[in-house]
Design a binder for these strands. Structure first.
Lengths: 342, 342
DNA sequence: CCAGTATAGTAAAACGTTTTACCAATAATA
DNA sequence: TATTATTGGTAAAACGTTTTACTATACTGG
């Protein structure tokens, strides 16, 4: 087999400990022996084995990435991109990512992810909404955690979040800049902080522009913000407030559903009713008109999550810092100025 | 800290070895002591540490996934889906995937991926075309390898491949079934076995239908099969063979480029010229007309690769088996029967 | 010149498993 | 009954590092 630390020690005529100290850049070793050891390492093509290191140092060099099964399949491109962001940044910073999904109704008696049981990760990143019982179980084991695109209502954790409030304001302000005044909001599941924050951004933008908020221009009783509920919410909204001239949907899925409804009813988008979504998913480009939206840099969410995690691992303090990742307005064809055709 | 094998041994009043044997389902242990040990394990919530196991057993429970940087970025959705397929299946089979990218011009002196140096994987899956020097270096270390969507020209390795020949025949036969007879082929980089095989499928379908092959209906001098080269290849083809009534492009990217050219020249697709691609990528749905294509199940490629790898790891024989993943014809709007409007 | 203090290096324990060789007790065989 | 197998279990070595406590040597200041 290949060289071990023992072989290096023998060749450099030093003790094993000395080699170890050199590897770990301990200043206790003089320059001359350091060079001698490094030479032996080079000549033998030595590289320390992860398993041996991990056994005694209790560091694995791995970071766990956990999300629920339905998040992975339902929001596939979104969380995939966050995951790829973590992968990318982890590689830079000499870590590896271990991915796993959990069932959304994780019970306190459910079996933990294998990498937790095996103590094969130094920390865990939770992506999206995850069961509270799972969080508690992992925390109880003293494993550092970082949240991305979610923060549990209870407690105070390090988290990387989309700047949803600014995004909501940005979207709404864009519609206002288009001359729209009767702006509706389509949302689902207010329990989800992201959606609630986007709604807050909507409210704040209205207020800032001295546009009175009208309760009947808001539909938020859909349980899950997907395409179908966007379709239904649009129908409800139009029944309550037939005069809306713009829609801010809490995400692109709902926006696309709403758009579909409007097209079926032969309402002119964007002239008669402009519509803007949130997230910037691939499908936005496949529809006609292409959907204006608020772009979320998903990879950046992952990158920031890794950086935050590694900072925590290196400082081993609790630092429940929140990082807000900025968003960007993407103007496409589903929004336009009201003056253009009056 | 949490329980170790020692604690279990003490509580069950057996030796450490016995506990280990129970964990590893060794039949040497009697049912009664086995139960006693299992009880202790349950009571102490014991789970063996990966690092300690790995140190002595020389198994890591990890599988490396290597592809070149440009494959990851250029063909992003394609290889991402293969990767997700491996992730998914690995989880089922109690492995983890460690992902890394390498530079496309990996030199024999380049630094190997860290998980190789650290001996942190039991085997390596190569996705797409990878540098030969890298393959050789990894093989030289005795690490089992599996290829997916590529097989190096030299040697004989286990590989999971798209059934490109059948796919090429399927695509061409579909055009023939549409009544087309003057069918062009657009390809790039013939060095790539996939593309070459698709071309062979094209040839075979023509032959089977007794349609003479015409050299000037083929353009294959584009270096890289992307959208731009599809555009250019289409231009060249039309110059050489203005009478083509159908196009089989070696992949969707080229097909989309060709489609763009035809639209700019106001050629009627699909009536005048039908066009079919290969891969079935997301963008196929965003174009008008939506692209007919040969669907490749990317996740399935990854799943099969993992299964093959684990079979190899468990049998530790060399088994250079090839697995062909079948493809499927997807009829959309870019192909139609020639009789429809004659 | 001597006690005290850096400096540079080492020996040995520890990390938590698997595995190998061995042993005792029991069963099977001649 | 004596020998040989078989069964069920154990002791101890090994895996390849890090880390802690210790030592020898050289230096420093009084």
């Amino acid at each position: 087999m290949s060289a071990t630390i023992k072989d290096v020690a023998k060749r450099a005529k030093v003790s094993i400990s000395t080699v170890s100290l050199v590897i770990n850049n301990n200043p206790r070793i003089s320059e001359s022996t350091r060079q001698r050891v490094l030479k032996a390492i080079r000549e033998l093509n030595y590289y320390p084995r992860r398993a041996a290191r991990g056994l005694v140092s209790h560091k694995t060099g791995n970071i766990g990435f956990i999300l629920t099964e339905d998040h992975f399949s339902r929001h596939e491109p979104f969380y995939t991109r966050i995951f790829l962001g973590t992968e990318f940044e982890a590689r830079e910073l000499e870590y590896y990512i271990l991915l796993t999904t959990v069932h959304p109704d994780f019970k306190p008696t459910s079996r933990l992810p294998r990498f937790i049981l095996e103590r094969n990760v130094d920390g865990v990143i939770f992506a999206g909404k995850v069961p509270d019982s799972l969080i508690q179980l992992i925390e109880a084991r003293g494993i550092p955690v970082v949240f991305v695109d979610y923060h549990p209502p209870r407690g105070n954790y390090p988290a990387v979040l989309i700047d949803n409030i600014s995004g909501g304001m940005l979207a709404t302000q864009h519609l206002i800049d288009c001359g729209r005044r009767r702006i509706g909001f389509l949302g689902g599941d207010f329990d989800h902080p992201s959606i609630y924050d986007r709604y807050q951004g909507y409210r704040q933008a209205l207020e800032r522009n001295h546009i009175p908020f009208e309760d009947n221009r808001v539909v938020t009783d859909e349980p899950y913000p997907d395409r179908i509920s966007g379709y239904q919410a649009m129908e409800k909204l139009l029944a309550k407030a037939p005069d809306v001239d713009a829609i801010f949907a809490c995400n692109d899925a709902m926006a696309l559903g709403a758009l579909q409804y409007l097209k079926e009813k032969h309402r002119n988008v964007p002239e008669e009713i402009s519509i803007i979504g949130f997230d910037d998913v691939e499908a936005d480009l496949t529809v006609d008109p292409r959907l204006s939206t608020i772009r979320v840099n998903k990879e950046e969410l992952g990158i920031q999550a890794i950086r935050l995690m590694i900072e925590i691992l290196n400082s081993d303090k609790k630092l429940p810092r929140k990082i807000l990742v900025p968003v960007e307005l993407i103007e496409r064809e589903s929004t336009c100025s009201i003056t253009e055709n009056r």
